[in-house]
């Protein structure tokens, strides 16, 4: 097994414009995807049952997936078999966007009536439901939470560095770090759930970590710009890649085990951290370099 080392990037070979172009282009594509999805479906990303109302059932049954699909009076959004060690015949069935609360309450009864029990185990192992109006409430609360978190982070960034360009760099890359995984969700068909919202908020924290590190090395230390950048990168990339790997492992394991909350947090953080690598070391670096060499300093 090879050792994990952080390579030295020759930033001098690229102009600021070239460096910034890639992350900005990707951000533009992400925004395009989100607005396209908004125009088509009315929401930038598919809303899960937490935000649209509906139900999620974990069932244990010897019936086949096709029989599970037919057991309910409305078609499930997804049926996923759980592949944990020592577990057979368990499935997660999701329904989102049901307005009628009685229809939601009837789902578990339908499962119990129409599916074959697996030995003595209860058919409905777990059920989570939210009525449409409860979900709407959750949606508003979550939006407020994200807005407050983002605003608080922006204010803190300005307080920490007290200069315009570096602070803006932090805010812009945090924004992009959230938009890119959102666009990924829209494309990959991952529903927005409480778990993914938690991941997005965590991303704000993680994203700012590496930005602060970079800004701190470049602005608050004496020494050559490229030298400082390289040092910040060595630490920063170690951090981010370590977290990415942990999240990937957690995401895949939790997905196989059917632990939805942990799975969505893991996958979204993995994608977001990858976006953060790009944003920090291309967008942020180019903004900082421009500020350091050409920017007007007050």
């Amino acid at each position: 097994m090879g050792y994990f080392d952080v390579p030295e990037v020759e930033y001098t070979r690229y102009s600021n414009r070239q460096l910034a172009a890639v992350p900005l282009a990707i951000l533009a594509v992400a925004l395009l995807v989100l607005s396209g999805s908004f125009l088509l479906t009315g929401a930038p990303v598919q809303l899960g049952m937490d935000f649209a109302g509906g139900a999620e059932l974990t069932i244990q049954t010897t019936s086949s997936e096709g029989e599970i699909r037919d057991a309910f009076d409305r078609a499930p959004d997804s049926i996923q078999a759980i592949q944990a060690p020592g577990v057979d015949n368990q499935y997660t069935v999701q329904f989102a966007g049901i307005d009628d609360s009685e229809a939601i309450q009837a789902l578990s009864t339908q499962a119990e009536q129409n599916l074959e029990a697996d030995g003595d185990a209860a058919i409905v192992q777990s059920e989570s439901t939210a009525s449409a109006s409860f979900a709407e409430q959750t949606q508003r609360t979550a939006l407020l939470g994200i807005a407050v978190a983002f605003l608080g982070m922006s204010v803190l960034a300005f307080l920490l560095f007290r200069t315009f360009v570096p602070s803006v760099a932090i805010v812009v890359s945090a924004f992009s770090d959230i938009m890119i995984p959102l666009a990924f969700m829209a494309i990959a068909g991952i529903q927005l759930s409480l778990g993914t919202v938690a991941a997005l908020l965590m991303l704000i924290g993680y994203s700012v970590d590496s930005d602060i590190l970079l800004n701190n090395h470049v602005l608050r230390r004496s020494g050559d710009f490229y030298e400082s950048t390289h040092r910040a990168m060595r630490t920063g990339i170690t951090m981010t890649v370590t977290s990415m790997m942990a999240m990937l492992v957690m995401g895949i394991a939790a997905w196989l085990f059917g632990v939805e909350l942990l799975a969505s947090i893991g996958i979204i953080l993995f994608v977001g951290l990858a976006a953060d690598l790009m944003n920090t070391y291309m967008l942020n670096v180019s903004l900082l370099r421009w500020y350091k060499f050409e920017g007007v300093r007050s």
Binding site: L156, L201, V208
Partner: peptide
Amino acid sequence: TTIIALSP
């Protein structure tokens, strides 16, 4: 920042 991001 992490604390601020998660406090809501």
